[in-house]
């Protein structure tokens, strides 16, 4: 399966996790990790699975590297019907009110353009005791399993 791990990052933590997820999956799949700042929404492809990894910054906002992408989704309004994605959020529950605001915004933008979300939006808490990859690797395997049944099938 073709998989793009798209990350939105501010401190680099989401970038590192995205690269780790890509390394974890590459034994069995064609995987590329791409910064959302380098990804054009016009290039979404129904035959590729998109794993989004996104942090939150400031007051519940998208991280810097996801902002141009989000702006393009809104201004260019691409039709993402048939595009499948899973989304993993990195947050910090010290900031209760805005916890995982970034990935929530990103998922809503994708769905508004017609993309289909696979699985739940999972959140890692930087103030918790779990390592991000310990949650993200099983999540990625699960989403890939779900995508096996949907990617390439008629939407």
């Amino acid at each position: 399966m073709n998989i793009n791990v798209l990350y939105g990052t501010e401190t680099g933590n989401a970038e590192m996790l995205a690269e780790d997820i890509a390394a974890e999956l590459e034994a069995n799949h064609e995987v590329t990790a791409i910064n959302l700042s380098d990804f054009d929404p016009a290039n979404f492809d129904a035959d590729t699975l998109y794993l989004l990894v996104c942090s939150t910054y400031g007051d519940g906002e998208l991280p810097a590297s996801a902002q141009p992408f989000a702006e393009k989704l809104e201004s260019e309004q691409p039709d993402l019907t048939g595009v499948h994605f899973g989304i993993f959020g990195m947050g910090d529950s010290e900031y209760e009110e805005t916890f995982n605001g970034g990935p929530k915004t990103l998922a809503e933008l994708m769905i508004a353009r017609g993309a289909s979300q696979l699985g739940d939006r999972i959140a890692h808490d930087a103030s918790g005791t779990d390592m991000a990859e310990d949650i993200a690797f099983p999540w990625a395997e699960q989403i890939v399993g779900m995508a096996d049944e949907t990617i390439g099938q008629a939407a």
């Binding site: 401190t11 590192m16 910090d92 808490d125 930087a126 103030s127």
Partner: peptide, 10 residues
């Protein structure tokens, strides 16, 4: 602010 310190893993 242990979440902020998580950057040290990088």
């Amino acid at each position: 602010h242990q979440g902020t310190k998580a950057v040290s893993r990088q």
